[in-house]
Computed example of a mutant assay.
Amino acid sequence: MSAPRPARRKLVLHLDLNNTLAALDSATGQGPGAALNGFLCGAAWGAPGPAGEWQWLSDSPSLLPPCPGAVNFYSQYGRDATFTDTEVGRPFRSLHTHHLQLLEWQGRPHKVFSVQGEHAKHYHLMLPSFFHLLETLHRERRHFAVVFRTFGTDLPRILHAVHCALEGQHPQFPALRDLTLPVELTAGRIRCSRREVVLNRGPEHVSTRDDGRKLYSYFSSFQGLGGFQDHFDWWARNQFSSQGGKPLWIDPHDSTVHHIFIDDNIRLNDSDTIVCPQGLLLAPGEPLAGGG
């Protein structure tokens, strides 16, 4: 008789919004074209030449350096909303055009799910791949929750769009109405200081001051979809390093929950990344979560 398959862990997906789930940023006024240019700046690799001129080391974008000594354009010059319109960014212009076309909304614009971008064209507010992800997790009968984590101002709009999609209103994903996922439309806040991290959402108030595990337990028991605005000023005060980034609590001994963070600003360099992982250790005599 074969042994029973182990239960799959609950997935808690922490998802950034701007330039990750949505190709726009209302706070900076960037549309899809500018947002896509900003992303390409961090995925295009080169190095300064002998006279200080920029030289490309690869004509293919990637998240990891293609060779030793390669640095991305973003680390040298920052994000450029017109990157592929400049002479230096010309090698990536056709790539930008192609992916911008993939983001175009087909058919009559939708007041909830499409957004007007450059040249009066309309684009998807949220990447269709997100809705494919929801359908796939539902089809595979996974136990999961989605937590939007953003520094920006688009969270209420995104929560409303997801709510409408799960009611079956998205013309490309009508089957989403079959998902029984609650959406909390109230946007929460996470604020950080040297003493504590505080989460507020409606009547909910959770702090790490007395117990560092409280926020881990809160997110591990999260149901459905909801979101929080993280503390951008705290990140800036910490020189945009991981020390001031969006906090993510991890318990390596918990076999029941798997937290995953997806953000376009996650980098391998701790001095320039947006997530602050915080590992939780077992207290003396504390049993392993999930039964050992």
Rank of each mutant, 00 (worst) to 15 (best):
V275I: 15
V162S: 08
T84W: 04
K10Q: 02
V183S: 03
E167K: 15
R90G: 08
L282I: 02
S26W: 02
S220P: 00
P174N: 13
K10G: 00
E135I: 10
H122C: 09
E104V: 01
Y74E: 06
E140R: 08
R93E: 05
G168P: 08
C192G: 06
L185K: 05
A120T: 14
H258M: 05
L282Q: 13
G38Y: 01
G212E: 15
G291R: 11
S94T: 01
A23F: 08
F151G: 07
T208S: 05
A3E: 13
T136R: 12
G227E: 11
D230C: 14
T136P: 01
H119K: 12
L179W: 03
T82Y: 12
F113S: 07
L57N: 11
L103K: 08
Q239E: 15
A35Q: 14
R141A: 09
L127W: 14
D59I: 03
N72P: 01
R237M: 09
Q30T: 09
G244V: 02
V147N: 02
A43M: 06
N37M: 11
H122N: 12
L268A: 15
A27R: 15
Q106L: 12
H99G: 03
F39D: 10
S220E: 02
P50S: 03
L282F: 04
L155E: 10
T82V: 12
T20E: 06
C192S: 12
C276G: 04
L57I: 11
G29V: 09
M1A: 07
F173A: 00
L248R: 00
P109Q: 01
T273R: 07
N37E: 13
G291Q: 10
E204L: 04
S241T: 05
I266L: 07
G227V: 14
H259V: 15
I190V: 14
Q55I: 11
F148V: 03
L282W: 02
P156F: 03
W56G: 01
E118P: 03
T273Q: 08
P6N: 10
T136F: 09
P252E: 14
H170M: 06
E204I: 03
R79V: 09
A47Q: 09
R267P: 08
P284I: 12
E87Y: 08
F173C: 04
P277H: 05
F131V: 01
N18I: 10
N265L: 11
V206K: 09
H253C: 03
G168K: 14
S193Q: 02
A3V: 10
H205C: 05
F232C: 02
A120Q: 13
D254F: 14
G152H: 13
D263A: 00
R142V: 09
G46W: 06
